[in-house]
């Protein structure tokens, strides 16, 4: 029942409203970009430090298995098609760098494109 209800809710969205909102959203993005361009005259510079240790061991699991799990879990995960991949997200808190672990769906655009790239590199 719930599903039907939810579908109805989704169906209730007015396409015109979506179009309008899309337009507004694009305008905000555009405006932000232009504002940035105005604010930052001159060439952008690289100003970040990537802690090298995050890359260590990354090749081992770049095929997308859940790292750190027991072998049993791994199998289960494989069975389900390995829906999620653990990634390290680099964030800054103030000026401090931090590395956070989190799971990203295997089929997310971010991973899909990264994978394609890696595949291409391997071919080379």
């Amino acid at each position: 029942d719930d599903e039907v209800h939810v579908r109805q809710m989704v169906a209730a969205v007015d396409p015109q409203e979506i179009a309008n909102f899309d337009q507004e959203l694009r305008a905000v993005v555009q405006e932000s970009v232009e504002q940035r361009k105005l604010e930052l005259r001159g060439r952008p510079t690289l100003n970040m430090m990537l802690p090298m240790n995050v890359f260590e061991g990354s090749t081992k699991d770049h095929h997308g298995r859940v790292v750190g799990g027991e072998s049993g879990d791994e199998a289960l995960d494989e069975e389900l098609g390995g829906k999620e991949v653990q990634v390290k997200v680099l964030v800054k808190r103030g000026n401090k760098q931090q590395t956070k672990q989190m799971y990203i769906p295997r089929d997310s655009t971010l991973l899909q494109s990264a994978k394609q790239k890696e595949a291409a590199e391997l071919e080379e």
Binding site: S32, V33, R36, K37, L40, P44, M48, L50, V54, F55, S58, T59, D61, H62, G64, V85, Q86, V87, K88, V89, L90, V91, I104, L110, L111, S113, A114, K115, K117, E118
Partner: peptide, 15 residues
């Protein structure tokens, strides 16, 4: 992705 799919950073598109 920073070089590899398992390390990710947030980056602004401008600049």
């Amino acid at each position: 992705s920073a070089k590899t799919e398992s390390v990710v950073v947030l980056l602004c598109r401008e600049p």
